[in-house]
Design a binder for these strands. Structure first.
Lengths: 235, 235
DNA sequence: CGGTGTGAAGCCTTTCACAGCA
DNA sequence: TGCTGTGAAAGGCTTCACACCG
């Protein structure tokens, strides 16, 4: 049996709902912080499963995932109570549940926009395609780049976005363009129907409600490290 | 005048302090969440400064940095009260303060370990060296790779880490190795004297107290996006 | 006036600690 | 006995709202 989950107040539901109905709704939201840790647990479980162990304790999972045991238990309890007291969690079962929850049972066609150094590296990055994520298109605005082969794919033109997204059912796109192009690319992606974006460009990109965007920013990460490093040095 | 800051409760100070003393201590910790946003403000300020504007309001900064105005004001108030009521913040002055705080006035020699696809891309990534970060060494364990030229640098061997770190005063290292090598590389980095690590390998890496580590994990990011995408699709 | 600086409230997350169950 | 599941407490972050001041 699988219960339906509701996510944050993204305005996807009519505002004025009958209070009765709201109470009977199977309201089981998973906190963002927990969602962000599910991939860690997943990876830890893969490791455990390789060793053909039947069960794991929250303590073991915690150490493999680099968090503490209380957090593991609380997080997993949001998915449902899949553990056995006095024993631990069944590895296979838990892995199936998390796989399910993260949507890794299905195939996710991914599109990369921008094929400079970083984009090219991402295109070739094996283990990127880790479980379900499959790069199905490379797109660039530069006519020089269009037509080039990278790995086993050919770079296509930005203008074809709508067709590419529709035909190949792209749900997730990666932006690896220079900063100044990021917002326009995002707009075109959203217009083409993409609802999830991973942004590597060092720029703030905003998207309408109902679209998810996450960013990975090297310069920012280094600057944060520099902050702590500096303040350690100055005692 | 510049006040000294204290960072997190890392046990650097004796626990049982005289309450009197605690009150008089210039206790001005900057919350982690705020530190993580300083780079965004910095970038926003660079943009503003290019337009030769003298002051910015928290509202303007907020929109450029993709956060809200209250957050900007609170964050900046941790650095000190550098704004002028009714006017806003002096762009140059604020930029200098943040630059100072983030430690971007000094030069940060960076080392990259692991020169697969990703490592190579990072090595060539311009704008990585954005402000103060300078790649001073490339290191790999694979004898095949040692000696190769990437950009204007030559790949060196992992065994030389201690000498490289010491001589070139490396404070920050980037791990771009396969997952299975990450922990050992981290250990060797720490032993060699590195105190800040940015980890791109999809593995949990632990470091001793006093060393900062941050991670950038593509697979995790995609999985988080997949989670929300899936839960949107299922209504 | 207009916009900062900041207590206070509210929300989210983490941690604690132990009841409850195999 | 051992480990999960979970209320409750604690802590941290965000947001509000307005006093204060140039």
């Amino acid at each position: 049996m699988h219960k339906r989950l509701r996510l944050g107040g993204h305005g996807l539901f009519p505002a004025g709902r009958d209070p009765e109905e709201r109470c009977t709704t199977d309201e089981r939201r998973i906190p963002e912080a927990t969602v962000a840790r599910l991939p860690l647990y997943y990876r830890a479980l893969v490791e455990v499963a390789e060793q053909a162990v039947g069960t794991v304790s929250s303590e073991q999972l915690a150490s493999l995932a680099g968090v503490n045991a209380a957090k593991v238990r609380k997080d997993l309890s949001y998915l449902g109570s899949y553990g056995t007291r006095g024993v631990g969690y069944d590895v296979d079962y838990l892995m199936r549940e998390i796989t399910q929850e993260l949507g890794l049972t299905q195939d996710w066609p991914v599109l990369i926009v921008g094929l400079g150094n970083l984009g090219r590296a991402l295109a070739n990055y094996r283990g990127f395609g880790a479980r379900g994520f499959r790069i199905v298109a490379l797109v660039d605005a530069d006519p020089e780049k269009v037509g080039q082969c990278i790995g086993e794919m050919t770079v296509e033109t930005l203008g074809d976005l709508p067709a590419i997204v529709a035909e190949r059912r792209v749900a997730i796109a990666v932006i690896a363009t220079p900063a100044h192009a990021a917002q326009e690319v995002a707009d075109r992606l959203v217009e083409a129907g993409v609802r999830s974006i991973l942004n590597f460009a060092p720029a703030v990109v905003s998207v309408p409600e109902g679209v998810s965007i996450r960013k990975v920013d090297l310069a920012t990460e280094l600057q944060i490290l520099a902050f702590y490093q500096q303040h350690r040095e100055h005692v």
